[in-house]
Computed example of a mutant assay.
Amino acid sequence: MPVAWMIGLPAVLVIAALLTWVARQYALRRNLMDQPGERRSHGVATPRGGGIAIVLTLLLATAAAGLAWPGGRVALLVFGVGLVMVAGIGWWDDHRPLPAVRRLLVHLVASVLVAALVWQASGNPVQAVLALLFTVSMINIWNFMDGINGIATTQAILAGLAFAAVMPMPFALAGAVLALACLGFLPFNYPRARIFMGDVGSGALGYAIAALVCLASVVTEVHWLLLLVPLSAFLVDAGFTLLSRMLSGQRWMEPHTQHLYQRAVKGGMSHTSVTGMYFVFGLFSITVFNACSDLQPRWEAAVAVAWLIFATGLWLLLRKGMRN
């Protein structure tokens, strides 16, 4: 490993941790607090907005990558602009709540930037449209699932490591940087939450992970269905919870506590235990992903479908048990 990487990667971890500490001091001074409530899973007022540390760390890493690889500067700039857009609207929403439609419009524009990068790299307009839809979905899924201590951050760490393992250098560094930036934030949020990520962090993290998946889709031969496996815990819980709310006629965009992880906490499990369970499932998911990433495309797709069916069945079983 070059000396620059040996210095740079640990620096990502340290910078993220320091910036999280600064973000906490800012939130305390501004009284930027998440209050307990019926639609929340925490019981004490807690500072929010700590995810800005992850965002700033990723932006610094993006700038450093642009200096190291001049040929990728345009793509890195486009990604950085999209990240700033998603984080910026989240930061605004953390300070002064915004209408959902306004946030969604910004998410769409940022997702178009990712789609444009995919189109430029692949020459495939269908793949670009799928990238757009996927990115919009991931921004909101990570926001929905960021409801208890450590759950969104640990799943992002696992995803970053999983994709880093299958991508060639220097692209693999994107996954490693994402994982390290999240790891720097994690001690402030898990097992005891001294600060929450906030919309500035959760939406931006979803955007960054979507961009990472899209990058993997153009620099590797891994089937796009298999690329979903490391994200299956969140995709299944968020997707089927949203579907059930829509089918029952509920206002699905409103805050709620109906996700499986929220039901588990409401049922008496600790944040630590629930996050741990999702982490263990995530470990199995990335193990399946990495073990099967060198198969023929049809077998990769078959494994992915089988895993997603298994995850759905497990979700239905656990949800039924908690309802009873």
Rank of each mutant, 00 (worst) to 15 (best):
V288Q: 00
I89C: 04
I7L: 15
D93R: 01
V86Y: 03
L130V: 14
A162N: 13
H223I: 07
A53L: 01
A181Q: 08
G160A: 15
L308D: 15
H259D: 08
W315L: 11
D294A: 10
I148V: 01
N290R: 14
Q35K: 12
C214A: 15
I148A: 00
T62F: 01
G90R: 04
A53Y: 12
P2F: 08
G8L: 11
C292F: 10
R323H: 15
L318C: 03
E221D: 13
V106N: 06
L212F: 09
A233D: 15
F289L: 06
H259N: 07
L186A: 12
V81I: 13
A216E: 05
D146I: 11
H107I: 00
G8A: 05
Q120G: 12
R73Y: 03
G184N: 11
V112E: 02
L104S: 08
E300I: 03
M253K: 14
G49T: 02
I54D: 02
L225C: 03
T287W: 10
I139R: 02
A233R: 13
V200T: 10
M1C: 03
V213D: 13
S122M: 14
L9T: 04
A87T: 05
G201M: 04
A27R: 02
A100D: 14
I195G: 06
V86S: 02
V303R: 06
A131K: 05
C182E: 00
I209A: 04
A306M: 14
A291Q: 04
K266Y: 05
V136K: 05
G51N: 03
G249T: 09
